[in-house]
Simulated assay, not measured.
Amino acid sequence: MARHWSAPLLLNVLLGIPGVVPIWLLWYLAANWPLAGLGLTVREPTETDGALGWVLITVPVVGLYGLLWWSANRPLARRTALGSRAYWLLSVLTTFVPTIVLIITTWERN
Score class of each variant (00 low, 15 high):
Val55Cys: 08
Val55Ile: 15
Val55Pro: 00
Val55Thr: 12
Leu56Gln: 13
Ile57Asp: 03
Ile57Asn: 09
Ile57Val: 15
Ile57Trp: 14
Thr58Phe: 12
Thr58Asn: 09
Thr58Met: 14
Thr58Pro: 04
Val59Asp: 05
Val59Pro: 02
Pro60Phe: 05
Val61Leu: 01
Val62Ala: 08
Val62Ser: 02
Val62Tyr: 02
Leu64His: 04
Leu64Arg: 03
Leu64Val: 13
Tyr65Ile: 04
Tyr65Ala: 01
Tyr65Cys: 02
Gly66Ala: 13
Gly66Lys: 07
Gly66Ser: 11
Leu67Trp: 15
Leu67Ser: 10
Leu67Pro: 00
Leu68Asn: 05
Leu68Val: 12
Leu68Gln: 03
Leu68Pro: 02
Leu68Glu: 04
Trp69Cys: 01
Trp69Gly: 00
Trp69Phe: 10
Trp69Arg: 03
Trp70Asp: 01
Trp70Thr: 11
Trp70Lys: 02
Ser71Gly: 01
Ser71Asn: 10
Ser71Asp: 08
Ala72His: 04
Ala72Leu: 10
Ala72Thr: 07
Ala72Met: 11
Asn73Tyr: 07
Asn73Ser: 09
Asn73Lys: 06
Arg74Glu: 14
Arg74Asn: 10
Arg74Gln: 14
Pro75Lys: 06
Pro75Arg: 08
Pro75Trp: 06
Leu76Ser: 08
Leu76Met: 15
Leu76Cys: 06
Leu76Trp: 11
Leu76Gly: 04
Ala77Lys: 10
Ala77Gly: 09
Arg78Phe: 10
Arg78Gln: 15
Arg78Met: 10
Arg78Val: 14
Arg78Cys: 00
Arg79Pro: 03
Arg79Cys: 04
Arg79Ser: 14
Arg79Leu: 13
Thr80His: 06
Thr80Trp: 07
Ala81Glu: 15
Ala81Pro: 10
Leu82Tyr: 07
Leu82Pro: 02
Leu82Met: 15
Leu82Gly: 01
Leu82Ile: 07
Gly83Glu: 06
Gly83Met: 03
Ser84Trp: 13
Ser84Gln: 11
Arg85Ile: 11
Ala86Phe: 04
Ala86Ser: 14
Ala86Pro: 00
Ala86Asp: 12
Tyr87Gly: 01
Tyr87Asn: 02
Tyr87Ala: 01
Tyr87Arg: 02
Tyr87Ile: 04
Trp88Gly: 00
Trp88Ala: 00
Trp88Phe: 03
Trp88Ile: 00
Leu89Ser: 05
Leu89Ile: 11
Leu90Gly: 07
Leu90Met: 10
Ser91Lys: 00
Ser91Cys: 07
Ser91Ile: 03
Ser91Leu: 01
